[in-house]
Design a protein around this nucleic acid. Structure first.
Lengths: 138, 138
DNA sequence: CAACATCTATTAGCATGCACACTATTTTTG
DNA sequence: CAAAAATAGTGTGCATGCTAATAGATGTTG
């Protein structure tokens, strides 16, 4: 099989390409694409522990630790200890993050809309089914 | 749109997942997935300059430089200067790389086969068309 | 021919993303 | 209850992948 036809190669290219679409729009906010996605996850689940964020974003825990480090450094989130379990933390969005919510979620919806509008609902369903079929058991 | 339904997120997860499938099989050879793909590209175009490899793999040139650094360090490739243009280099596979060709290409075909067999030819064509539709103009 | 632009590859700096190992805490088990 | 196992988060080291800036060589243009 020719290299250009390799599915893994094509998916990797496409994934980087889509990430760039977000990146270009959120760079003015001082966020990277991965940080942006973590914030979107937190807008849905403010106060989640890192383990939950790792599960939700399907990133390893050391990766989440690093992301949270930089988000905390830049004042987007705050780690608070969990009184119920001293091993655990809970991650909370700061006032700054809530101030940017509308603007960031608008970018999120806008870019998702750019992708969605290229397909009919039936095509989307079929596409999603293809992705799901590839997801498991290698 | 819920975070889990975001196409960019799903593609990124899937891309990492597929990469892992190659990684598990080529780690014993002492190669990473990106290095492995670069070798596959070179089996098709031995002697190509870095600029061509950057185009072929759709990676930035600094990324290609780093990949070639590590491949050369580990004895897989060799950079030779181009007599016709002293700015240019040409990248050649070493004897070691050719010795591993059969084995590495077997992994390549095996894993691609794992993915391909999940779809009928018509489904593959439809899937590829979806990917192509997303590729351009963001 | 000389100034300028372009093209080659690279370096530096940063942020992921991963495997591995580690500490602290909690839970389980004998 | 004490020992072992499991869990939460982190530190380390490495390999991508990117942007911006750089050095050298070639092409272009006045």
């Amino acid at each position: 099989m020719r290299f250009e036809d390799c599915l893994c190669f094509q998916l990797a290219c496409l994934s980087r390409s889509l990430s760039r679409t977000y990146r270009d729009r959120i760079a003015p906010h001082g966020l990277t694409q991965a940080q942006f996605f973590m914030l979107i996850a937190l807008y849905e689940e403010d106060g989640a522990p890192p383990s939950r964020l790792s599960q939700k974003t399907r990133l390893d825990r050391p990766t989440v630790t690093g992301l949270l480090d930089r988000l905390e450094r830049d004042g987007w989130v705050e780690r608070r200890s969990d009184p119920a379990d001293r091993r655990s933390l809970r991650v909370f969005l700061t006032a700054k993050a809530w101030r940017h919510q509308e603007s960031l979620c608008a970018v999120y919806e806008e870019v998702n809309g750019l992708f969605m509008e290229k397909f009919s609902p039936e095509e989307w369903q079929a596409f999603r089914a293809f992705l799901d079929r590839l997801r498991d058991d290698h």
